[in-house]
Amino acid sequence: MSGLAALFGRGTAGLPPPAPVEFGWLKLPASPNTCLAAPPGAHPQAHLLTRPLPIPVEAAWPKLQAVAAGFPRTWKLAEWPERFQAQWVQRTALLNFPDIIAAELTSGPAGTGLFLYSRSLFGHADFGVNRRRVEAWLAALDAELRRG
């Protein structure tokens, strides 16, 4: 990935081709510029826990897609519908920095599980941006589920 191409690109331009995230094996970097939300007990490094969604994975998938589409400066980077996983890029308003958001829905005995991972591609610290983003996406998904 060319840093300049990623910084000066629009949408997904300049970003490397994405690969699915293996959430079970994901090792978070030592830098504080990420945030991972995961179902309880699903990942030892999770910053936030997600509660089970009260609908089947197949019904939650379009709701997750709608939530992502509602955020500004956010473009779908890739999706793997067979595994209910997608990635988006959200660019910062001021300097156009690209951050990557990955989400996956899983079926479980308590309902639909959600992994949501936001990470900065540049820099070491993010001043809490990724955590606030994950919290905003979780709140938006909760609102979308309440709407029915």
Rank of each mutant, 00 (worst) to 15 (best):
F23N: 03
L95Y: 15
K76M: 14
G24Y: 12
I100W: 03
R119M: 06
P16R: 12
R146G: 09
P56S: 05
L145C: 05
T106K: 04
A38T: 07
L138M: 06
A136P: 05
A5W: 14
S31R: 14
F122C: 11
W75F: 10
K63P: 08
F71W: 13
A30G: 15
L7K: 02
F8N: 07
V57K: 10
S2H: 06
A68P: 00
P17D: 15
E82I: 03
E82A: 15
S107D: 13
P56T: 02
G14Q: 10
T74A: 09
K63S: 13
A68S: 06
G24V: 12
L7G: 03
R119D: 02
P109Y: 04
R83E: 12
L49I: 10
G113V: 05
F8I: 09
G3N: 12
F23D: 01
A93H: 13
F127D: 06
R73K: 13
P98Y: 08
F23G: 00
E58L: 08
P40E: 15
L121I: 12
R133I: 03
L77P: 01
Q65E: 13
V57R: 13
R83V: 10
E79W: 02
K63Y: 05
P29A: 07
F8E: 07
E79M: 01
A110H: 08
A69P: 04
T92D: 13
R10D: 08
W80A: 06
P98F: 05
L4D: 14
G128Q: 12
A42P: 08
Q65H: 11
D142N: 12
I100S: 07
E104A: 11
V67W: 01
F127P: 00
F115G: 06
A143Y: 08
L141E: 03
L28V: 15
A140H: 04
Y117F: 09
W61P: 00
